[in-house]
Design a protein around this nucleic acid. Structure first.
Length: 464
RNA sequence: GGCUGCGUAGCAAAGUGGUUAUGCAGUGGCCUGCAAAGCCAUCUACAGCGGUUCGAUUCCGCUCGCAGCCUCCA
């Protein structure tokens, strides 16, 4: 029985889809004006796990993740680069897809873009005017009148009279209420714009998501996700817009993932303390990054450091070592491990506990490898199958271990290593332990670790 | 100022009203020519102060510390 923490109620709830067996999920995606950083990677990986597990649990899932391809920052960046806006956005959408593939994140079923959803956006704003929830400000921008929406603040737990308007930014005098937010921005010279009943202009950020989500999943759907920082005002505004326009409940469950931090501080573009996915992938294998993300619960903060990534690599090494040399059974019966794994995932996607179960399986697998090979094969098969839900351990153990965590070119080739191993084998047969140890130490110095096993000698690369 | 959330052993990270989380690191053993890997055992915990309770790291209150939101941000 799957339970999911709902930000709306601040509690774990038994998940019951609106339509039995079917789930609609919308996640706020990237604003494409730069490369994805590790914080974005967390969103992609976390909701990839949610999607994978929902499907694994038998749900027919429609997963939508939008692309925000028109916004102030995009326009600004394009100007700075002296680049066409569409050229800029296409470039970073491609880069995002590249990062996504690298991290083994399965693509969403739909990936709507704001610029291709203008009809839906205009339709929704029109509806808000009809309901008396929208007005045109003194500067020509269209605003949402939040005091006309009684439930405003329900998601974030904020009360209007407790909010401090202008806490960090000057209040726009064109608004009736300082917290009213823009639905449609009047066109400025030199900016992309679209025709609308309120003149040429472009949509505000919040309305884009409301319109795209509604278009793809209907007025009312099951799960809406995104980063913690979107809770207020973005998601609060989405609720006001969608429920205001349709008169129906918008979303059943709101899921928010925690931040990636650096030195106990939020990683963000504005603070400039971020690492891009492609930067990190030069140093660490994608699976290590994925494991790192999953090693803490999705709602907890996740501190980024080399030590943490190194730890993730060591942990993966242990799991792959267990799988090494065992042919996993294709048809494997479910054990208590499988049950525990599902219990963990059913408990609000508790991946750290799910991973702990994998380690327990690895321990038993290590024990049975040279004992009950039938059982070992079963365990290996199940371990691989459960790991697939997390998108890890799908590589060939031998090649994972031999590649190690170094992605640099150079060093000894496989043939050279095999030759050294052969030489050492000769030395061992001659009981020339000095020579044998010399060879082993020599390889060790180059980051190659030898392990003598019953069937011969295994080798792997480790961090230099 | 208002609102969230967090504080677990050397590090990371779950969880629980009384019973081993898990990974890395440490210690002792087994295995090994010696190692490595693996296996077995084992040492370091639940911010502080009160309260509820037979019993609290777990529930409640307060204090201290940290992070986030109240602009755009995943």
């Amino acid at each position: 029985m799957l339970k999911i923490y709902n930000t709306l109620t601040r509690s774990k709830e038994v998940f019951t889809p609106r339509v039995a067996g079917k789930v609609g999920m919308y996640v706020c995606g990237m604003t494409v004006y730069d490369y994805c950083h590790i914080g974005h990677a967390r969103v992609m990986v976390v909701f990839d796990i949610v999607a994978r597990y929902l499907r694994y649990s038998g749900y027919d899932l429609t997963y939508v993740r939008n692309v925000t391809d028109i916004d102030d920052k995009i326009i600004q960046r394009a100007h700075e680069n002296n680049e066409e806006i569409t050229a800029l956005t296409e470039r970073f959408i491609d880069a995002m897809h590249e990062d996504e593939r690298a991290l083994a994140v399965l693509p969403p079923d739909m990936e709507p873009r704001a610029t291709k959803s203008m009809d839906d956006i205009i339709l929704m704003i029109t509806g808000l005017f009809e309901k008396g929830l929208a007005y045109t400000g003194t500067n020509g921008d269209v605003f949402y009148a939040i005091n006309k929406f009684s439930n405003y603040g329900a998601l974030s737990g904020k009360k209007l009279d407790e909010l401090q308007a202008g806490e960090r930014v000057e209040v726009d005098q064109a608004k009736q209420n300082p917290f009213d937010f823009v639905l449609w921005k009047k066109a400025k010279a030199d900016e992309p714009c679209w025709n609308s009943p309120w003149g040429r202009g472009r949509p505000g950020w919040h309305i884009e998501c409301s319109a795209m989500a509604t278009r793809c999943l209907g007025h009312h759907f099951d799960i809406h996700g995104g980063g913690m920082d979107l809770q207020f005002p973005h998601h609060e505004n989405e609720i006001a817009q969608s429920e205001g326009a349709t008169g129906e409940k918008f979303v059943n469950i709101w899921m928010h993932n925690g931040f990636v931090r650096i030195n106990e501080e939020k990683m963000s573009k504005s603070l400039g303390n971020f690492f891009t996915v492609r930067e990190v992938l030069k140093q660490y294998r994608p699976e290590v990054v994925r494991f790192f993300v999953l090693s803490s619960h999705y709602r907890s903060p996740l501190n980024y450091s080399d030590e943490q990534l190194d730890d993730a690599m060591l942990a993966l090494t242990r799991l792959y070592t267990a799988l090494r040399g065992v042919e996993g059974a294709v048809e494997c019966r479910s054990t208590e491990y499988g049950t525990r794994f599902k219990q963990a995932m059913d408990d609000d996607f508790n991946t750290p506990v799910a991973i702990a179960v994998l380690f327990d399986m690895a321990r038993e697998l290590n024990k049975e490898k040279n004992n009950d090979t039938e059982l070992a094969s079963q365990l290996a098969g199940e371990l691989t199958e459960l790991s697939n839900v997390l998108g890890i351990l799908q590589d060939d153990p031998e090649s994972f271990l031999q590649a190690g965590d170094t992605l640099q070119e150079g060093g000894l080739t496989e043939q050279e290593i095999e030759q050294f191993i052969e030489q050492r084998l000769q030395a061992k047969q001659n009981k020339d332990w000095t020579l044998a140890d010399e060879i082993r130490n020599g390889l060790k110095g180059q980051g190659i670790v030898l392990e003598d096993v019953a069937t011969g000698t295994n080798w792997r690369r480790e961090k230099a």
